[in-house]
Design a protein around this nucleic acid. Structure first.
Lengths: 344, 344
DNA sequence: GTGAAAGCGCTAACAA
DNA sequence: TTGTTAGCGCTTTCAC
């Protein structure tokens, strides 16, 4: 009879070795499969033995080996999210939405950031992730890196893309930015502005939906189409653009690629002596949490990034489980009128 | 002799079954370990066989089973990050720092959010993560949920905590907020303000370092210690507090728990007809990316969250690899003087 | 209800 | 350099 001490198994180099299911079985005086049964609840075990097993588990501080389980049951409960960034508002919220939906279904989320669309860089970043046991992958294709990453996912792994514009044939959750950009541009035109200038954020491909929608609205209304300015992701880059825009008297309305850039643009405009919206109207995109607190409060387009993340995960889950489901989910962002835009 | 067609193995229910190392070996006409050798590069293989193996791998579209590898080589390359939130500035940046450092070392990051300090909630959130093969865990203990989560990590798993104040005996990377809060409060006092009011963000425990530092500075200077106001994480909650503060004529300087709250407070103050900094000085904490673009540009304390994340990961890596290293890393945030605070 | 035996897909040890 | 033999720690038949 073994004594009831909680001696740990000692590994080769003195490192305590984790208890295995066999140790538990031995201590409880039952067979290995019986321990497995109480662990998984797959089959019934008599109350007496169950009790013994549970006690042994507690005494040995036993935790089943995830790797062994995975090998035999082959149902990874992890999805990888591949993104070009994690901390910017849109990305962070999207990831939050994926994580929340995943957690609700018992899945865990793995994050991989691909910083550049460079092939080698992508390979390095992604291979570490793809060598994990994965149930599926969510790709945020808001930028070139994300788009490029998509091509590197093995075709036998369930995948879903999240973006602002529909394109490929893979399952996708989108936030229809094109329509929304069209709407807000038309709103500005309706206010009496002859045309609307545009400051774009780094596009994911040749042209983003935000820019396309803006262009489309101007064209439909027969307005002239000014050359867009290019901002980086840094809000500060908007400031320099605002200063430049202030020097151009034809600028009376500006549609910015996102709220943070709009804030920078307003700062630059105001620094140059312009009043917003009296002299120049400025609108943003995304409805950043600080948009309503800005001076003046920003007219913008609300984007439910977290919602898109959740829809994306659910699409992925359908693929993983082989459920017949929709392979596409789109939502139309809605305009929020505050006071950074006014009549000409 | 087998034909060179790329027939897929068919599983029980018609689902294509992934190729195994044995399939590759058979197709290449070599033994299983030889395939393993070219896969891992652990031992030399003759160019001829290597070529055959590589060809077979390509033809079969073979990817090694992560689960099997994990089981036998027992070196998980994944660290879990447990956080109370993922999208707020400080959290998002910290996670970004962990991810970046991890990626550089070939590790992948898993995210788990614990929304409340409720025991059951934590258990559910965490157990999915802990049942994965993990090399270690990084806990962000910026809030009660994070603090509570720490208690649920098995003691045999390497852990590191990230926070704004030193406490426990586990390895920890911190941003010394107490000292920084003291410094910025003193700065305000030095400007001639009789005392400094304080708006705090939800604390991780009884009292945060930011509040402690503020209190300490006031005490040392013999200033009266006003009752702090409590904000939520929402910037907008600062607005209501700003309005309340505007009604109190003794308020001439306000130290806010973070920049987003400071922005809300300023908005509320301005809405109530106060000028910042002429009537009331307001300072924040964190140096949020929008702080310098705010009206007026915010005086604040720069916190290198990403840096802390990186330091934390490296501490964890030392534990994982059993390297003798420091178990504690602290950094002093530095004050950034802009124009939201001025003389009394 | 329970145990014996088989096997998941890979790497590590050992011979040859 | 290469193949044979053993496992890794679990779950899953299949008898009893």
């Amino acid at each position: 009879m073994t004594t009831a001490t909680t001696t740990r198994r000692i590994g080769v180099n003195g490192v305590p070795k984790a208890a295995t299911i066999a140790d538990v079985a031995a201590r409880a005086g039952v067979s290995v499969p019986t321990v497995s049964r109480v662990l998984t609840g797959a089959a019934r075990v008599s109350p007496g033995k169950r009790e013994l097993v549970e006690q042994a588990i507690a005494e040995l501080n036993f935790r089943p080996s995830a790797a062994a389980r995975l090998l035999v049951s082959r149902r990874p409960q992890v999805v990888a999210v591949i993104a070009g960034d994690t901390s910017r508002y849109g990305y962070a919220e999207t990831i939050r939405g994926v994580e929340e939906a995943a957690r609700a279904e018992g899945y865990t989320v793995m994050i991989t950031v691909v910083e550049s669309p460079d092939e080698e860089e992508i390979d390095r970043a992604i291979s570490a992730t793809l060598s994990q046991p994965l149930a599926g992958v969510v790709v945020l294709k808001f930028d070139p890196a994300g788009v490029a990453a998509l091509a590197h996912i093995p075709r036998d792994l369930p995948v879903v893309a999240l973006s602002g514009i529909r394109d490929a044939s893979i399952p996708q959750a989108v936030l229809d930015e094109t329509r929304a950009a069209e709407e807000i541009t038309e709103y500005l035109l309706g206010l009496g502005h002859e045309t609307v200038h545009h400051v774009r954020i780094p596009p994911s491909r040749r042209e983003d939906g935000r820019t396309t929608g803006w262009r489309r609205a101007l064209r439909r209304h027969g307005a002239s189409i000014p050359e867009p300015s290019d901002a980086t992701w840094e809000p500060k880059s908007g400031q320099a653009i605002g200063i430049a825009l202030a020097a151009d008297p034809t600028v009376t309305a500006v549609f910015c690629g996102n709220d943070e850039i709009a804030m920078g643009v307003i700062r630059g405009l105001v620094d140059s002596g312009k009043r917003v919206p009296d002299d120049v109207s400025v609108v943003g995109f995304d409805n950043h949490p600080l948009a309503e607190l800005w001076t003046p409060p920003l007219t913008t387009v609300e984007q439910d990034f977290a919602g898109m993340g959740g829809r994306g995960f659910r699409l992925l889950l359908d693929e993983i489980e082989g459920t017949l489901g929709r392979r596409y989910s789109s939502e139309r962002p809605r305009m929020i009128i505050r006071s950074s835009a006014g009549p000409r």
